[in-house]
Write a protein that binds this DNA or RNA. Structure first.
Lengths: 139, 139
DNA sequence: ATAATATGGATGCATAATATCCATAATTTA
DNA sequence: TAAATTATGGATATTATGCATCCATATTAT
């Protein structure tokens, strides 16, 4: 139960971009400012591009830009972009039946945790993080 | 971000014990009933013993017993027994300073998620899971 | 004495997370 | 047109860790 470094990298990169009002921020700049291995960052950025969170431009003066304003991007999207579907426990897969129980007694617990987790992610925007005003979100 | 199989094993074992009104349930029985590799289960049980959640007895007719009633054991304790301190992200360690920011913009988010996670764990008892009445807990 | 059980430590295995490298395509600028 | 800069995509390596296995030992009931 922990946040992967990969997700941390993605969030840091996007936060960095969101805090700058200019387009075409190069991987190099993000990498150096956020201490992220550039080759690894490349892989992460591709996923963000694929998911439509950022737009890329090749060539000199190329780089990445946010496709939407920071208040239109929430953490859930970022999570799913880099990690895929949110699923706390294997048996929560859609069509997987738990081998042990008809009605697993602990599934509702993990489900509740997951719902609450997703709720927080969905309600938190990149703008919140850029501005650092997380407290505004109701706990 | 997911629940480890180890924690799942621990919860299943304790739930199994909580559902039976007898003492000295052997590893063998738990292992066979819950499909948990017995050698691995051994390691998990030791941690539960060390944390005082269960009591063990060696020798024939030996085994494990809950030290408290199921309604006195909550999920947070179980989690911590097998996983150690709850910490969603590395930089949440007590005396670790994030190398990037004075005030990290995303830390409050992860912190909020973690607080909500811990709350659910603390409010869920083994009894809830044994009886399957998770719904009673306020969402 | 024997059998059944937990304990503790050492070790191995498999998979995933993280990181690195390289060849290529696109685009700007000189 | 040439050169430089940047992202892309795929292959591969490295590391960490979750998971599992094995074995020798101690304890206790019968």
């Amino acid at each position: 139960m922990n946040i992967s470094r990969t997700l941390d990298y993605a969030v840091r990169s996007l936060t960095y971009m969101g805090a700058k009002p200019i387009d075409n921020i190069s991987m190099k700049e993000i990498s150096e400012n956020q201490y992220i291995p550039i080759n690894y960052l490349a892989k992460i950025m591709r996923r963000l591009v694929k998911r439509g969170l950022v737009r890329s431009m090749v060539g000199p003066s190329g780089g990445y830009s946010l496709r939407r304003t920071p208040n239109e991007i929430n953490l859930k999207e970022i999570y799913e972009a880099v990690e895929g579907e949110i699923r706390l426990i294997e048996c929560m897969e859609d069509d997987k039946i738990c081998r042990l129980y008809e009605g697993c007694p602990q599934l509702p617990v993990w489900d509740k945790v997951q719902v609450s987790f997703v709720k927080i992610l969905r309600e938190t925007t990149l703008e919140d993080m850029v501005k650092g005003n997380i407290n505004k979100i109701d706990a």
